[in-house]
Amino acid sequence: MKQDFFRFPLHVIVHPFDGFWDLKYDGKGKLRVALVILMLVVLSVIMQKQFSGFLVNFNDPRNLNSIMELITIVFPFFLWCVSNWAITTLMEGEGRFREIVMAAGYSLVPIVLMYVPMTIISRFMVQEETAFYYLLTSIAFVWFIGLLYVGTMTVHQYTAVKTVLTMVLTVIVMGIIVFLGALVFSMLQQIYEFVLNVYREIIFRT
């Protein structure tokens, strides 16, 4: 428990090459830990939007919606995993879907670690100190991207350049999936409309 949920994730974020290797080959990563981290990210972002200090909180409280936050984090996360899996399968990546989810999940740890304390500290900040708030939240994000990069590289056993290429392609594939999804959705809607109209015609004719 302690090893899985605390030691290992904290080890991964400071020793990413070592950590992601252990995650893949020593079986130290756990899928449920990755999912718990994802939920914690959702929670910390909701907390940040709701409770961060007045000076850094530019959200209209009337428009905050936890369900929307959940969707806007969880959906892109799995979209990333699916796209990454799709692209790496074609590009001789060694990672399995499980491992991709784990790598992405463990990469999110810095966000949780930074956002929660910063949300609390921001409540006591004055204008001049808000720069630190933005600095540290930006660091968290850059750290996350770095970990994601190393994670992808290690999980698929790629070279540095190929990892960058894969990540860019993954983002493009994410766009394609969203586009196709929207297309299918709108087509289904039109088919539904069509069937409904045919039904109505028949009803009115008889």
Binding site: F54, L55, F124, M125, V126, Q127, E128
Partner: peptide
């Protein structure tokens, strides 16, 4: 926000 900061 500016005056809030001062008061804070």
């Amino acid at each position: 926000r500016d005056h809030y900061s001062v008061a804070c």
